[in-house]
Simulated scan of single mutants.
Amino acid sequence: MSKPVILCVDDEKVVLKSLKTQLKSAFGNTYVYELAENPADALELIDEFNGDDTTIILIVSDWLMPGMKGDEFLIRVHKKFPKIVKVMLTGQADEDAVQRAFNEADLHRCLHKPWSEEELIETIKTALSL
């Protein structure tokens, strides 16, 4: 059986690289860490993994991205895969969007950029122990 996947979605490569480094430092090889630079690529990855019977257990997504906002992306994911834990990481989400994600995507937590590594890791630990 393959390792569970944590998917990070952000249009800034430097953010994706930081997330992967921090997650790998905290969780080592327990998970596979996948990166997507936009929601369309992320949705494609999710479908591919689902076809391969690989489980995505958690998504960390930005809110302000080209093509689709993070709340809309997480709601779409939630409708198809309600068990995936969802965390939004944003510097600019409006409160309505965050509330919509909590209500319609079962958002676990919203972290604000710049985030602290400690807060990110603690959020993911609590999310995965649900």
Rank of each mutant, 00 (worst) to 15 (best):
M88T: 03
M88G: 03
L89S: 10
L89K: 07
L89N: 12
T90Y: 07
T90Q: 09
T90K: 08
T90E: 08
T90V: 08
G91V: 06
G91R: 04
Q92I: 10
Q92E: 14
Q92A: 14
Q92P: 02
A93T: 03
A93P: 03
D94C: 06
D94N: 14
D94V: 06
D94Y: 05
D94M: 06
E95I: 12
E95A: 11
E95H: 05
E95Y: 06
D96Q: 09
D96T: 08
D96H: 05
A97W: 00
A97S: 09
A97C: 02
A97P: 02
V98F: 03
Q99D: 11
Q99I: 11
Q99W: 05
R100G: 03
R100W: 03
R100V: 06
R100N: 11
A101D: 04
A101K: 00
A101C: 01
A101I: 00
A101G: 01
F102W: 10
F102C: 09
N103M: 05
N103I: 02
N103W: 00
N103L: 05
E104N: 12
E104A: 07
E104F: 09
E104M: 10
A105G: 09
A105S: 08
A105K: 04
A105Y: 01
A105L: 05
D106K: 05
D106M: 01
D106S: 09
D106Y: 02
L107G: 09
L107E: 10
L107Q: 08
L107M: 09
H108C: 11
H108D: 11
H108M: 12
H108T: 13
H108K: 13
H108W: 15
R109K: 15
R109I: 08
C110W: 01
C110D: 01
C110L: 06
C110P: 03
C110R: 00
L111W: 06
L111S: 04
L111P: 00
H112M: 14
H112A: 12
H112T: 14
H112S: 13
H112Y: 15
K113M: 11
K113G: 06
K113V: 10
K113S: 08
P114W: 13
P114Y: 14
P114N: 12
P114V: 15
W115R: 00
W115F: 15
W115I: 13
W115K: 01
W115E: 00
S116D: 15
S116P: 00
E117T: 15
E117W: 04
E117Y: 04
E118T: 14
E119V: 15
E119H: 10
E119L: 15
E119M: 13
E119I: 15
L120S: 04
L120K: 02
L120G: 00
I121T: 13
I121Y: 05
I121M: 10
I121W: 04
E122I: 09
E122D: 13
E122G: 06
T123P: 00
T123N: 03
I124Q: 02
I124W: 05
I124A: 08
